[in-house]
Design a protein around this nucleic acid. Structure first.
Length: 483
RNA sequence: CGGGGCGUAGCGCAGUUUGGUCAGCGCGCCUGCUUUGGGAGCAGGAGGCCCCCGGUUCGAAUCCGGGCGCCCCGACCA
């Protein structure tokens, strides 16, 4: 696997040869994660975790800017709590991990390791909320959750994963709906702006919505193998949980009422999306805004000039690190060429090479991860130039992904057409839908594609008839095979 | 839960068909010297419960039973 070609090392299975293997190779070669001893669990290694921290920071900032505060609820949920909301139990029961013993003693009531925190949080809200003056409650938590999955893949589906879950309670149905959409927009903005991943914004069908929700909104992204991935969801819970957990408040009109609730989340799965949207045959490609290292400096230091070059490289680093996440790779045991390949596999957006030749000319060489173009740049005023490059890389990631999504969004008038597209090209397919679950199921059975969402914005093409039954299409929806 | 693949040095693998100089290779690691603009070279060196348990046999990495684990692909989920 280590043979060279075009000067680049091939340690990664080409995408075109085996996409799944490519994905796993990138996860490992980019040093994002390692497999843990427990089935379906992984270690998020420092480089991967640093990426997650940057994602967290960008999203957390937006969550707080919309008036939410962070809190932390317990990992363990009494079984009886989980049982309260019928749809919710049914949805999560098959994948809950249970704690049955504390030390040697068997527990009187089993404890669920949270698969999501609606129930425990609602139980607390019912104690905290009494008056309309207590509303809205706008709380978010960053936590780990566990879902006992049968088939797992790094980042995309792991037994334990990290996420953020927002849980809010409101006075009116309208306010809850506004909140649900507000947070959907927060996700869209974050994913599109910081991750350069274009998404389709829409509502889930009854069959695809969250267990216990009135309805679920989603942002759906398209991976470079043509499969869709749900990047984040926002649920309008209505009063389902409020009723079973007895979350009531006395309103201004002296009436006792149930609150209206929402919940919304984004997970470490988004890292999988980042890999699959931007990565290439040489490895990871990271958008500068979330890259753990935005700029890596690789000194070209022949023995005789070693000290001189390193001194320059260090000066360069001091200058840049005030503004950017910078790393100087001054390891002596690797050659420059080795380092080039290494940092490219790890997706660092911009590399700066500095060697004796550059010092003579008062310049450095900038090399973009996307495209790999080498540009000599004057040493003076470098910070602004580098920032300009990073902005441009962020933008061009976006444009490339956007173009890919547009080119891979097709239309179908029948199940046969959809099926042909799914077998050949995949991607998003717009089609008419009558609104019946039976047609949704039949399409899935026949083509492997599910309804990813009913878009909120006009998709620019209208399906007149249901692609399945031929009846009147009440919606034009996005179909895709999904992760 | 179905289908496939795989467990031998830190990693990637060969060896298993046909039991016996079979504990091997590449990378990595350690020491030294020479090197440094796209994974450097030479020399020397360290490193093993061959996944686990049982059986067959004079003898098992290899054959037979039974476990366990991991990966991939499908169905369910973020």
């Amino acid at each position: 696997m280590t043979e060279k070609k075009d000067g680049f090392v091939k340690e990664i299975t080409p995408k075109s040869e085996d996409f799944s293997q490519w994905y796993v190779d990138v996860c490992r070669k980019a040093d994002l994660m390692d497999y843990a001893p427990v089935k379906g669990c992984m270690v998020i290694k420092p480089y991967g975790y640093s990426l997650w921290e940057n994602i967290k920071e960008g999203l957390d900032r937006r969550i707080k800017a919309t008036g939410h505060v962070n809190a932390y609820f317990p990992l363990f949920i009494p079984e009886s709590y989980l049982q309260k909301e019928a749809e919710h139990v049914e949805g999560f029961a098959p994948e809950v991990a249970w704690v049955t013993h504390g030390g040697a003693e068997e527990l009187h009531e089993r404890l669920a390791v949270r698969p999501t925190s609606e129930t425990i949080i609602c139980a607390m809200y019912s104690r905290w909320i009494q008056s309309w003056r207590d509303l809205p409650v706008l709380i978010n938590q960053w936590a780990n959750v566990v879902r006992w999955e049968k088939a797992t893949r790094p980042f995309l589906r792991t037994t334990e994963f990290l996420w953020q879950e927002g849980h809010t309670a409101h006075r009116t149905a309208e306010e809850a709906e506004e909140e649900t959409l507000r947070m959907l927009e927060v996700y869209r903005d974050f994913v599109e702006t910081d991750l350069s991943i274009p998404v389709v914004v829409g509502r889930k069908t009854e069959g695809e919505k969250f267990a216990g929700a009135v309805h679920t909104y989603t942002i759906e992204a398209l991976m470079s193998d043509g499969r869709a991935l749900q990047a984040a969801t926002s649920h309008n819970l209505g009063q389902h949980f409020a009723k079973v957990f007895d979350i009531t408040f006395l309103d201004q009109d002296d009436q006792l009422k149930h609150v209206w609730q929402t919940s919304w989340g984004m997970t470490t799965r988004i890292i999988g999306a980042l890999i699959m949207v931007h990565g290439d045959d040489r490895g990871l490609v990271l958008p500068p805004k979330v890259a753990p290292i935005q700029v890596v400096i690789v000194p070209i230091a022949p023995q005789k000039e070693r000290e001189r070059v390193l001194a320059e490289a260090r000066a360069l680093q001091r200058e840049l690190e005030e503004h950017l996440r910078t790393h100087l790779d001054d390891r002596d045991e690797y050659t420059p060429g080795w380092k080039f390949n290494e940092w490219e596999m790890r997706g660092v957006p911009l590399r700066i090479e500095i060697g004796p030749r550059d010092i003579e000319r008062g310049q450095v060489v900038l090399v973009r991860r996307d495209g790999g173009a080498k540009t000599p740049v004057s040493r003076s005023g470098l910070v602004d130039v580098v920032k300009g490059f990073l902005d441009d890389i962020q933008k061009s990631r976006w444009q490339k992904a956007k173009q890919f999504m547009e080119e891979n969004t097709r239309t179908a008038g029948s199940v046969d057409e959809l099926k042909a597209i799914m077998e050949d090209k995949r991607g998003f397919v717009l089609g008419g839908w009558c609104g019946e679950g039976s047609c949704e199921d039949a399409v899935k059975e026949e083509t492997g594609a599910t309804i990813r969402c009913i878009p909120l914005a006009e998709p620019g093409w209208k399906g007149e008839k249901c692609i399945c039954c031929g009846g009147h299409a009440s919606h034009t929806v996005y179909f895709a095979r999904a992760y």
